[in-house]
C-alpha cells in the first residue's frame, strides 16, 4: 500500500472581487467614510477533497476558469485556503512559467544559486549540482553573462535545468512541455520521463488530452470550483472530452 503524500480535505478558496479595484489611499478613505466599499465574494474552489498517493501522476482537468491554477497554488503553499486543510509530505517543486524568478541583471551562474535558494536548497547542495545544471542547460560560456542578454529559449533551458536537477518528491507541472528547440524538448521529455520512472509524484495541468493520457494514471476534473469527478485517467479524460464537445 503506497502512502498518501498529498491530502486535500474540504478545501475552499474565497476571493473578494472589488467592484472597482481600490489601490490608492484617497479612494479607500473616501469609500470607507461614505461606506461604499462594495465587493462581491465568490468561491474559486469549494469543498475539494482528494488524496494523492506516492508515485501517482494526477492530471488536473477543467475548462478555463475552473480553478485549476488556484488549486495548484494552494497545494504549493503560495495561496492560503479560506477553509479546509491541506497536508503534504516531501519537497514540492513548482515548474510553472520557467525562468520567471530570474534576476535579469544577474549572470546565469548567480541565478542558479538564487533560484536554488528560493526552492529551499543549501549552498553546498547547489554547489554540488552546479556543473550538472550548466551541462544540462547547454549554455556553455554564456552561463557567466547576465540573464537579460539571454534569448527566451536560453532562459527556459536554464530554468528547466535548475528545477529538475533537484529531484523533488512532488512536481507541479503547469503546461511547460514546450521547452526550447526540438532537440532540447526531446531531452527534457526524457528527463521528466526518468523522474516518473523513479516514482516521483506529479500534479499536471494541461488541456492537451493526448499528453495527459501519456503521462498520468489518475485525474480529477474541476468545474467552476467544485470537484465533479476523480478516478483513473482514462475515465476522466472521456468525461472531459464529452463535456468539452457540448
Amino acid at each position: 500500500m503506497s502512502k498518501i503524500v498529498i491530502d486535500v480535505d474540504g478545501v475552499g478558496v474565497k476571493f473578494r472581487m472589488n467592484d472597482e479595484k481600490v489601490d490608492n489611499l484617497k479612494e479607500y478613505i473616501i469609500r470607507k467614510i461614505t461606506g461604499r466599499i462594495g465587493y462581491k465574494e465568490f468561491w474559486a474552489l469549494r469543498n475539494i477533497s482528494f488524496t494523492v498517493e506516492s508515485g501517482d501522476r494526477v492530471a488536473v482537468l477543467g475548462m478555463n476558469g475552473a480553478g485549476k491554477s488556484t488549486l495548484l497554488k494552494v497545494i504549493a503553499g503560495v495561496l492560503k485556503a479560506t477553509e479546509g486543510k491541506i497536508t503534504s509530505q516531501g519537497r514540492i517543486a513548482p515548474l510553472l512559467e520557467l525562468g520567471a524568478g530570474f534576476d535579469p541583471q544577474y549572470s546565469g551562474a548567480e541565478n542558479i544559486y538564487l533560484y536554488g535558494a528560493m526552492l529551499g536548497y543549501s549552498r553546498d547542495f547547489i554547489r554540488s549540482k552546479f556543473n550538472e545544471i550548466v551541462e544540462f542547460s547547454e549554455l556553455g560560456e554564456f552561463i557567466n553573462s547576465p540573464v537579460k542578454n539571454y534569448s527566451s529559449g536560453m532562459k527556459t533551458r536554464l530554468g528547466f535545468s535548475i528545477a529538475t536537477v533537484v529531484e523533488p518528491d512532488i512536481l507541479i507541472l503547469d503546461e511547460v512541455f514546450a521547452v526550447g528547440d526540438a532537440k532540447f524538448r526531446k531531452k527534457s521529455e526524457k528527463k521528466i520521463q526518468s523522474m516518473f520512472d523513479r516514482g516521483i509524484t506529479v500534479l499536471f495541468v494541461s488541456h492537451n488530452i493526448e499528453q495527459v493520457k501519456k503521462i498520468c494514471n489518475k485525474a480529477i476534473f474541476l468545474e467552476s470550483g467544485t470537484l465533479i469527478a476523480s478516478g483513473p485517467c482514462e475515465d476522466i479524460c472521456d468525461i472531459y472530452e464529452v463535456k468539452s464537445n457540448q
Binding site: V78, L96, E97, A100, G120
Partner: peptide, 9 residues
C-alpha cells in the same frame, strides 16, 4: 512579486 506568486518562501 514574481517569486511570491510562484514559490513558497
Amino acid at each position: 512579486a514574481q517569486m511570491i506568486k510562484k514559490v513558497y518562501v
